[in-house]
């Protein structure tokens, strides 16, 4: 209950940002941070709770993004409907991939590699078929109306991403406090032991990947409607996959607030470095990589893990080293 209150309070504070922050540049930076937290939390559902590490979350993201874009351009479907469908299609693709990989018992690095391969296959496919606009990409026509999910005000985009991200975080809060989440963590920690006490590991992992794919798909829809342009490497390339896992790992896998912390730290660092060194291409990736190395070496449980270690040292339970 306490975590829920803190969560709602934090999101209330974030949602107030447009009311006092007048700089469009900085509001956009906060928006991208919240958006990164969504990517990280979606990945965290599958990895942190379901125990399956994906290197290819761009698969679900790109599916959602292309879904909303293609539906409105080729079929005239309203993007709000495409928004829901994008999430659902993300979940569906996730289920299909989960079914194929979990069925053959793929785990750990094998699972990670297969997810990467799936995303690559989709990238190549979207590069070669015509209805996605192929390699030239797809441009969503400018039509700034709320009914077209395009806004004149940055603050409207800001509140939309806050709402989607909050929904994702509430889902994780619910997982942490319910039967499905308990089963996910049991499967994550020991699949055999979970099965012995009646947990259907296959079904639990499929539910985890579907939820994860759903929210990644929604993130993809948001991206498409915000930037109004997609191409195969934006949608299915490794950048989104890397950002998703990085945010969660840096913040703390398997925790509720980890992805938010991770997104904030990564974006603040990236901005600072940009200020000091200037806008070099590929710089943010280098920064992200260095942070990842530092985190893995010194704080394998992420920023949220550091907090927990400090607390347990203070309490004297002495398990800080783990």
């Amino acid at each position: 209950m306490r975590q829920l209150i803190i969560l709602l309070a934090i999101f209330a504070l974030i949602a107030l940002t447009p009311l006092w922050l007048t700089s469009e540049f900085w509001l956009n930076a906060v928006l991208l941070t919240v958006y990164a937290a969504l990517l990280g939390q979606a990945w965290n559902i599958l990895a942190g709770f379901g125990g399956q590490f994906s290197f290819g979350h761009a698969l679900f993201f790109g599916t959602g993004a292309y879904c909303v874009a293609v539906l409105q351009i080729q079929f005239g479907v309203n993007p709000w409907i495409g928004f829901v469908l994008g999430g659902l299609l993300g979940a569906l693709v996730a289920l299909a991939m989960g079914f194929l990989t979990f069925r053959y018992g793929l785990r750990g690095s094998y699972f990670a590699l297969v997810t990467l391969a799936f995303a690559e296959v989709f990238r190549i496919l979207s590069n070669s078929v015509s209805f996605t606009g192929a390699g030239e990409g797809i441009l969503i026509p400018l039509d700034r109306q709320a009914s077209q999910m395009q806004f004149t005000q940055l603050s409207s985009y800001f509140w939309l991403i806050c709402a989607i991200t909050l929904a994702c975080f509430l889902t994780v809060w619910w997982l942490q406090n319910g039967r499905l989440g308990a089963r996910m963590m049991a499967v994550r920690d020991n699949e055999e032991a979970a099965a012995a006490i009646g947990v259907n590991a296959m079904s639990v992992k499929l539910q985890a990947i579907a939820l994860s794919g759903f929210f990644s798909g929604l993130a993809g829809v948001f991206y498409a409607q915000k930037f109004l342009y997609l191409d195969p490497s934006i949608a299915f390339g490794p950048a989104v996959s890397v950002e998703s896992l990085l945010v969660a790992i840096v913040g703390g896998i398997g925790t509720l607030f980890g992805p938010l912390l991770g997104a904030a730290v990564l974006h603040i660092f990236a901005e600072l470095v940009r200020h000091v060194i200037g806008d070099e291409p590929g710089l943010s990736m280098a920064v992200y990589g260095s942070i990842l190395v530092i985190m893995v070496l010194f704080a394998p449980r992420g920023i949220a893990g550091i907090g927990r270690s400090v607390r347990s040292v203070l309490k004297g339970t002495g398990d800080a080293g783990r």
Binding site: E192, A193, A195, A196, I197, G198, N200
Partner: peptide, 14 residues
Amino acid sequence: KPHRIATRGMVRTF
């Protein structure tokens, strides 16, 4: 499957 057997009321320890 093990989980279905457990659901039926037979459970093992390791």
